[in-house]
Write a protein that binds this DNA or RNA. Structure first.
Length: 153
DNA sequence: GCCAACGTTGGC
DNA sequence: GCCAACGTTGGC
């Protein structure tokens, strides 16, 4: 059992979108970074906890809680020649990119990035490191607990 | 819109 | 394999 922070642009998929989906579950598509892909492919397990983070928006921060509910499978968007996530080098036989299904468990208050930066228990979070751009980052159990506590406060 | 940080590409 | 050029991310 591990914990993750996953970034999504709310203009594309917000926590509200996830909670409104069938079974509150949505495929996590469009990851086009090998490190993030490898986390999904090699480390994520069904049941892992997810901090759902809104990025590239007026108020970036954690907006909800979710969990991993599927094994990895090929990301359909890599094959869509008209889509923005199309990858001409990917084939059905040799897919490059994968998705996993994420189920929203709770929309929470927004925990703004600015507030996260003030919390000593979170200072080592990968997402807070200078220059960190990875869309999927590991979260420790201690960090997870600290965030959940803050979200309830 | 700016720009720092980082990833990817491709010539050599 | 090096590394300059370019593209992207994402906070501000």
């Amino acid at each position: 059992m591990q914990y993750w922070l996953m970034k999504s642009e709310p203009d594309e998929v917000s926590i509200d979108d996830v909670m409104a989906s069938k079974d509150q579950t949505t495929p996590w598509f469009g990851v086009r970074n090998y490190q993030a892909r490898n986390f999904m492919r090699d480390q994520m397990q069904v049941g892992d906890g997810v901090l759902f983070y809104h990025s590239s928006c007026p108020e970036p921060g954690i907006a909800g809680l979710a969990e991993i509910v599927s094994a990895p499978y090929p990301d359909a968007s890599q094959f869509d020649a008209k889509g923005k996530y199309y990858d001409p080098k990917a084939t059905q036989e040799q897919p490059r990119w994968i998705s996993i299904d994420v189920k929203g468990t709770q929309k929470t208050r927004l925990l703004p990035l600015a507030e996260m930066r003030t919390i000593p228990a979170l200072e080592d979070m990968v997402v807070l490191k200078k220059g960190s751009r990875l869309s999927i980052t590991p979260v420790t159990l201690a960090q997870w607990k600290a965030v959940v506590k803050l979200l309830k406060a």
